[in-house]
Simulated assay, not measured.
Amino acid sequence: MNEIEKFSLEVAENIRGLGADTDLQRKSLDWMVDAGGKHKYSYNFSWLGRPIIQFPQDMVAIQELIWQVRPDLIIETGIAHGGSLILSASMLTILNYCDAITGGHSIDPKRQNRQVIGIDIDIRPHNREAIETHPLSHMITMVQGSSVAPDTIAQVHNMASEYNRIMIILDSNHTHNHVLAELNAYASLVSLGSYCVVFDTLIEDVSKQHYENRSWGPGDNPKTAVHEYLKTHPEFEIDRSIEHKLLITVAPDGYLKRVR
């Protein structure tokens, strides 16, 4: 066994230990509630100049998954300030560069046409302008409309038909019915070995008082939608190794891997 293999085994053992440490998981949840609820912790970060409104741990996880899966297309619901779109676009740009210098583009020309599709029912003018003037804007297509409207779904499916390796990130309206409708609309596009990431499943694990002014809360949120969806979609499995290694994540049970 070489040193790289030894290190990989050590990391895997670390993650198993974290997954078994329920006390540390509870402390992590308490910290997230205080930092996220009281202080809007996730608002403090940006990616290449655009606010991303995510925990840094989930940002790192998304980066790892994009590098692992090497998708041609990433579809995201929920745009806000555009930071997540920029993160995805920057990673796809790096993949294009790596393909170019290794000759990968000569094997599959589509790789050089990687894109990010962002869907939002309300793209604020100042956010649209900031995204469209960003140096990575050529990698991004924005679709304004409800992510679960039939015309939006048809438009996105039509664009996705040109791509073979697809990843999905769901982060818009967090009610059970909306997220379940998004899963039914888009999860089928996820390629084998890729992921559908459902953010804010954490809502299920937090007291209802934190969501008094929201239409979602415990019992009605992305995690309940994920569990409902998985009852009839065995092609997806929850990759809990991701949440175990992160500990701090808004997406427990939300990293769904297509395994068949």
Rank of each mutant, 00 (worst) to 15 (best):
V190W: 03
V156R: 11
A181W: 03
Q155W: 15
S188L: 06
D205I: 04
D205F: 04
L189R: 07
H178F: 08
I168S: 07
S188R: 04
I168V: 08
N177D: 13
Y195R: 01
V197Q: 01
G193N: 02
L180I: 05
A185V: 08
Q155R: 15
I166V: 14
D171A: 03
V179L: 00
E182L: 01
Q209T: 14
R165M: 11
I203C: 14
N164L: 12
N184D: 05
Y186D: 10
R165N: 12
S172K: 05
Y186F: 09
N173H: 07
L189G: 13
K208D: 13
A160G: 07
A181T: 07
H157R: 15
H157N: 10
L192A: 02
D205K: 03
D200E: 11
N164Q: 14
N164T: 11
S194R: 01
N158Y: 12
S188C: 03
N164C: 11
V179I: 03
L183I: 01
Y163A: 03
V190I: 10
H174N: 06
N173P: 06
Q155T: 15
N158F: 09
N173I: 02
I166K: 00
V179N: 03
A181E: 10
L183D: 13
T201K: 04
S191G: 04
L202S: 02
Y186P: 14
V190T: 14
Q155N: 14
L170V: 09
L170F: 08
C196P: 15
L180P: 11
N177Q: 07
I166S: 09
H174C: 09
H157W: 05
Y163I: 12
K208F: 08
A160T: 09
D200N: 04
H174M: 04
S161R: 14
K208A: 15
V179K: 01
F199N: 10
S194T: 01
L183E: 12
N184F: 05
T201Q: 05
F199V: 07
V190D: 15
L180V: 04
E162L: 13
E204D: 15
S191I: 07
A187E: 12
